[in-house]
């Protein structure tokens, strides 16, 4: 680990480039990690910029020989504290899990970073196997943050039935991901 108290402009420039390259390569993994600790993707949106800046401010503490995976793990550790801080500011008005559970989940999530990455790739492959209407239904809900009841009223279907359908599609995806993972990790 190194800490440079002063760096020349050229070194600083190189440091920026390296940080950008590493962060952009890790951003999805960090985001997914943070997502596993927060209740909604909107919370993640709110926090990601803070996390990015925090990582940048601490970047001279990151091992210059560290691999991209090391960088992702390092960012996750920083993110964990940012998540806990963020949650405390929100806890009063939300139904949220306890700090103890969040810490346990964070530890688990850090240990399964590569596995999670493979799972997300498998989700992409599995989504492509859905029929178009099913895929649209699942993505519409997540894309717009819209309620199932709104979609139900627009498509003249019963809420309960549509909710069951979404659950069924999720099961289908979950089974497909498990199947893919059992065959070996999908490609990157």
């Amino acid at each position: 680990m190194t800490h440079k108290s002063s760096t020349s402009g050229v070194e600083k420039d190189q440091q920026y480039d390296r940080f950008m390259s590493l962060f952009m390569g890790s951003e999805r993994a960090i985001r997914a990690y943070v997502r596993s600790l927060l209740l909604s993707s909107q919370d993640v949106d709110d926090l990601m910029q803070e996390i990015g800046l925090k990582c940048w401010h601490k970047f001279n503490h990151f091992d210059p020989e560290g691999s991209p995976l090391d960088f992702t793990r390092w960012c996750c550790v920083i993110s964990r504290f940012e998540v806990l801080r963020f949650r405390r500011s929100k806890a009063r008005d939300r139904l949220v899990l306890s700090d103890e559970v969040i810490s346990l989940l964070a530890t688990d999530a850090e240990q399964r970073l590569e596995h999670s990455e493979a799972e997300r790739r498998a989700v992409r492959d599995c989504l492509n196997k859905l029929t178009d209407p099913d895929r649209r239904l699942l993505l519409s809900i997540h894309t717009k943050g819209d309620s199932i009841s709104r979609i139900a009223s627009e498509s003249n279907q019963k809420v309960r039935r549509l909710y069951s359908k979404v659950n069924m599609i999720r099961n289908q995806i979950a089974d497909c991901v498990r199947g893919t993972m059992s065959l070996g990790e999908p490609s990157s």
């Binding site: 596993s36 999670s116 799972e119 997300r120 699942l138 997540h142 979950a174």
Partner: peptide, 17 residues
């Protein structure tokens, strides 16, 4: 582990969406 698996699935779907 089930929580992680489910959350990761949702995160991936959100990203794709």
């Amino acid at each position: 582990e089930i929580f992680m698996h489910e959350t990761n699935l949702i995160a991936a779907i959100e990203d794709i969406a």
